[in-house]
Amino acid sequence: MWNSFRTDAQVSIATQIITYPGGKGDQIHAYVARPQGGGRHPGVVVVHHMPGWDEFYQEFTERLARHGYVAICPDLYCRFGHGTPDDVTAKVRAEGGVPDATVVADCGAALAWLQAQPDCTGKMGIIGSCSGGRHAMLVASRVPGFAAVADLWGGGVIASPDQLSPARPVAPIDLTKDLTAPVLGIFGNDDRSPTAEQVNAHEAELKRLGKAYEFHRYDGAGHGFFYYHTQAYRPEQAMDGWNKIFAFFAEHLKG
């Protein structure tokens, strides 16, 4: 639970920007946050959203570390050059986005990086929002080794044939059969991508294939309701959502 630490606990984190070998061995940036004070901790790969490897995602990564996870957030836009997050995002958008295969490779390499860390237990999760939610589902279906996956309002998990492309050749929902990690889904009922109907269809597929999952839907919330820097922010729903994440990761990564 957020804000439930003991005031006499030695809770602190360390953060750094690293480079690590991503897909094809390319050196890419990642933001890493980890608990201090010794011991070993589960790991989480944090997949940033469409607006980029930005300050929100650095703080998101830090929050996971404060709750006992070694968290790594790869800069999936690293190969497109550097500037402010919105400028780099515009360039990525102009070039049609990051190919799914690149995301899978970079996140798979981030998992390997976590597995090599002496302060990591070996139990790993993956989480992302917006395009990152879709990517988290995709990676967890393609890369073995994750014990939990959290999809926060991932748009495009379901895609019509005309939305598929060489860069995004498969809809993640069609990979559900390959998924071994339990799924947490967090969604706003007013979202237009994914819509409530798409969330229902995603849940139906998980249920049909007998996958472990829990979905939480919030009234009065749309897309990106965790984003405290935007008008989409809904504090009550967001904090409940965060507590769902902490409980889910604690059950599957710390248990």
Binding site: G81, T84, D87, A90, A94, R192, G224, A232
Partner: peptide
């Protein structure tokens, strides 16, 4: 047509006039 940085809309029309031969910041948004 995607998430804007400003304005509070979930989606907006995003226009970028750019020259990425210079750098990602060579852009009018």
């Amino acid at each position: 047509f995607d998430h804007p940085v400003n304005g509070g809309l979930e989606h907006a029309v995003l226009l970028d006039f750019s020259n990425y031969d210079l750098d990602p910041g060579a852009r009018i948004a």
